[in-house]
Design a protein around this nucleic acid. Structure first.
Length: 595
RNA sequence: GGGGGCGUGGUGUAGCGGUUAACAUACUGGCCUGUCAAGCCAGAGAUCGCGGGUUCGAAUCCCGUCGCUCCCGCCA
């Protein structure tokens, strides 16, 4: 070993010990004679003192040091004088009086500062990711991520789960997200796909009798990126046999609670056991299927109250089968025209035609002012205040449109106001289960029913009849785990009955031929004694993101992609040479031919 | 596929029709024996992302393009 200790572990008790440290030069403070150098590694920072009276040779090396040089220093641990300790440093009670020093490797001046958290453009951070990873923020995030995954593995192992790796090269299925494809050299014109998740494989493992499976699994989806979405990401994938919904919820809830206590002990849960909401309830109250429950500010349905309104925006929306809903901004009646315009811009961005508003002057007399107040009758104003509980000084924001648009707009404005009002406390985790999802949703473009979760999700027993009579009303045995406005996990109890599976495929309009070519292996497997089973998948990246308080998924991934899906460090994706293409029986077409 | 924001010494920003392109920090050299974002002095460092246009004159206005980013669509 080139060192006896790390840069984070020496304390006053080590006084007098002769030690060797190795690390990076974090900072150098050169007083001409005395030189102080902070040695940094991932464990911490230790101050080394170069004194020419003590060692002229070491001092000469100290003079040559620059930021990010890799050094090895040998010396004696010395207690600092009482008035010179550094309280901000774990090692601040001591320093290392250097006897010998050696430059293990010099370093060019880095493209950005590594010894503080000063802002740097995303482009540079990604290009020099190995340097960005040297900084405290990402170091902490990587360690946290490791702790999360390590704890989950240990916990599930204790619960008799078996971690099983599933293939990365699998069969493409056109359902769901776009697949990443891998051409086959041995089989011209054929392609593998990278897994969007190990969904089918884990179900087959249940048929195999593995009973309790999990995997920390890399997943791939060729869709556009977002702040919380990368083309490759990591799931905790989990599946259990002989369980119902309650078993899955209970196990995952306990794992979550134990995990947070272990890795984030300073955070607190808003509520345990986790509250449960139906999908309909979540959409109605919060305009989202992943509501941030750290604050209430529920949406109020005014459709009945304004059913006979003379205000065209309201009557028009209702006439077209839409809804009218209200979001109350508590105490925000002092908002300026400019501030309301900002909110309207958000609304328009999400498809609203505008943003109707009014201010509550006096709740007891039902006096409203500004905005659309003049279009509301006294009776309507009274009823709106009674229904919402809005008080004097509150700002009323109305949404009148299709249910989906109103939900998106008011749901987003609710988050915006919650943020502005400081109601989104980062120290609190508001976990909740969202249940009773619809089994299928109507695809307007294709004029057909699509699986909301996936085609193997079981309908709820009491809704089986509706699969033919009223598909949109069928509830699924599906569940999402949400926290603070993030969807952190989702899963379902699967169909294990051949007849129900056939009804599902019929509903999804997947004909026999297609069933056989796409899912033949699954259907056949289910005929050999498939146990009732179900599971869930966590988005590990999002979990770590929430715990770390990071605003973007890139901050918890060691080597992430840009918003355009490129890797600035290695310059992937890249062109390949003609021979590689020829081996794969691939010819470039159209735009792709030009380089 | 669509919409918004940003791009100026190494880094982060200011400048928004005429400036010697400013500030902080980093960097280089000098001074300095108790600093810990050390201090003081001096210095070097920018064809203002790229291309075109408007103008007597463009970092500044317009068009295109590239890069980064956020959002909508998309994400079983």
């Amino acid at each position: 070993m080139l060192r006896t200790h790390t840069a984070g572990e020496l304390r006053a008790e080590n006084e007098g010990e002769s030690v060797v440290l190795a690390g990076w030069v974090n900072r150098r403070r050169d007083h001409g004679n005395l030189i102080f150098v902070d040695i940094r590694d991932r464990y911490g920072v230790t101050q080394a003192v170069f004194n020419p009276d003590h060692s002229a040779a070491a001092h000469a090396v100290g003079e040559s040091l620059r930021g990010e040089y890799v050094v090895q220093v040998k010396g004696t641990v010395r207690k600092r004088p009482d008035d010179m300790t550094n309280e901000t440093l774990d090692t601040g009670a001591i320093e290392l009086l250097v006897d010998e020093a050696k430059v293990l490797n010099p370093a060019r001046t880095p493209p950005f500062t590594l010894n503080d958290e000063a802002p740097v453009s995303e482009e540079l951070r990604l290009k020099y990711r190995y340097l960005d990873l040297r900084r405290a923020r990402l170091q902490q995030n990587m360690v946290l991520r490791h702790k999360v995954v390590a704890f989950i593995r240990r916990w599930l192992d204790e619960q008799n789960f078996v971690e099983i790796e599933t293939p990365i090269l699998i069969k493409s299925t056109p359902e769901g997200a776009r697949d990443f494809l891998v051409p086959s050299r041995l089989h011209p014109s054929r392609f593998y796909a990278l897994p969007q998740s190990p969904q089918q494989l884990k179900q087959l493992l249940m048929v195999s009798g593995m009973d309790r499976y999990f995997q920390i699994a890399r997943c791939f989806r060729d869709e556009d990126l977002r702040g919380d979405r990368q083309p490759e990401f990591t799931q905790l994938d989990l599946e259990m046999s002989f369980v119902d919904t309650e078993d899955i919820l209970a196990l995952n809830e306990q794992l979550t609670i134990d995990l947070v206590h272990e890795v984030m002990p300073e955070k607190r849960f808003l509520q345990t056991p986790f509250p449960r909401l139906s999908y309909d309830e979540a959409m109605a109250r919060y305009g989202s299927d992943k509501p941030d429950l750290r604050f209430e500010m529920a949406l109020v349905d005014l459709s009945e109250i304004v059913a006979h309104s003379t205000f065209r925006v309201f009557s028009g929306a209702l006439a077209e089968g839409g809804v009218v809903k209200l979001l109350v901004g508590p105490g925000l009646a002092d908002y300026s025209r400019k501030q309301i315009d900002e909110l309207e811009a958000i609304a328009k961005d999400l498809g609203a035609k505008g943003l109707a508003w009014a201010k509550v002057d006096d709740a007891t007399t039902a006096t409203l002012s500004g905005g659309i107040s003049k279009f509301l009758s006294d009776e309507e104003s009274r009823a709106i205040l009674d229904a919402s509980g809005a008080e004097g000084g509150d700002l009323l924001l109305f949404g009148a449109d299709r249910f989906e648009t109103v939900s998106a707009v008011l749901g987003r404005l609710r988050l915006e106001l919650g943020e502005r009002l400081g109601l989104r406390d980062p120290e609190v985790f508001a976990y909740a289960w969202i249940l009773n999802f619809p089994l299928v949703e109507w695809n307007e473009e294709q004029a057909r029913w699509d699986a909301m979760h996936h085609p193997f999700t079981s309908p709820q027993d009491e809704d089986l009849e509706k699969m033919t009579s009223d598909p949109g009303a069928v509830r699924a045995k599906a569940y999402d785990l949400v926290a603070n406005g993030w969807e952190l996990a989702g899963g379902s109890i699967r169909i294990h009955n051949r007849e129900v599976q056939r009804k599902m495929f019929d509903l999804l309009n997947i004909d026999d031929t297609h069933q056989q070519t796409q899912f033949g292996h699954m259907l056949e497997a289910f005929e050999y004694g498939a146990p009732p089973h179900g599971g869930i998948a966590w988005g590990i990246d999002r979990v770590v993101m929430l715990y770390a308080g990071e605003p973007n998924i890139r901050e918890v991934i060691a080597f992430p992609k840009t918003a355009a899906g490129t890797d600035l460090m290695t310059a992937a994706p890249s062109h390949v040479d003609e021979q590689q293409l020829a081996d794969l029986h691939i010819a470039l077409a159209g735009k792709a031919v030009k380089r």
